[in-house]
């Protein structure tokens, strides 16, 4: 049962991730990305990480993607404008990065096999309580550093977007 769900949701994520790349229309690509993130959230749910699953839907599918859609609509990026951008240089960099990432992932996960939830994880696993304890205990410094990073990004965005005062 769980295996069937696993194949369904991972298939959905991979398929929609491919659509993100191959759709010419930017808005359709963004919607396909929403589906990908939703599929990943379902995979989190299958792994008993319910809090992470809800967080994934709320933050990525709900907030981040809405901002993506917002920008796409505001700038009204059509097919023509996208084709105008010279992609040759960016393409080479993209291919190199992609190949490197693929090699890294394949060498890392080759021969690794993990059972899908045959482990006894305990009642607390994946609850808000245990995630919170990890975030505010063991990983407190990385967590706080991330929030400072986000704050810097927000202040930077406001400074850039603000009209110069005359």
């Amino acid at each position: 049962m769980q295996l069937a769900f696993f194949y369904f949701f991972s298939g959905l994520s991979i398929l929609s991730a491919l659509f993100v790349i191959f759709f010419r229309n930017t808005l359709s690509a963004a919607i396909a990305l929403v589906v990908t993130l939703f599929g990943v959230a379902c995979l989190f749910g299958l792994l008993e990480a319910h809090f992470l699953a809800a967080m994934q839907v709320l933050v990525y599918a709900g907030a981040v993607m809405v901002l993506f859609l917002f920008v796409i609509m505001l700038m009204n990026l059509g097919r023509e404008e996208l084709l105008k951008i010279k992609l040759a240089f960016l393409g080479i960099i993209g291919v190199i990065t992609g190949v490197c990432l693929a090699i890294l992932l394949v060498t890392r996960f080759m021969g690794l096999s993990a059972p899908l939830l045959s482990l006894d994880l305990g009642v607390e696993y994946g609850t808000v309580k245990s995630v919170g304890k990890l975030l505010f205990g063991e990983y407190l410094i990385p967590f706080e550093l991330t929030s400072i990073l986000l704050l810097v990004a927000i202040i930077g965005a406001i400074t850039l977007a603000r009209k110069p005062q005359s």
């Binding site: 919607i31 929403v34 319910h50 809800a54 839907v57 709320l58 599918a61 993607m65 809405v66 609509m73």
Partner: peptide, 25 residues
Amino acid sequence: DLNIGIFYLIAVTSIVVVGIMMSGW
């Protein structure tokens, strides 16, 4: 009765926004 009940509710209703933006565009 999910153990993340109210949080799930906030998360799921945010899908509505995507639908509304899609319909508008």
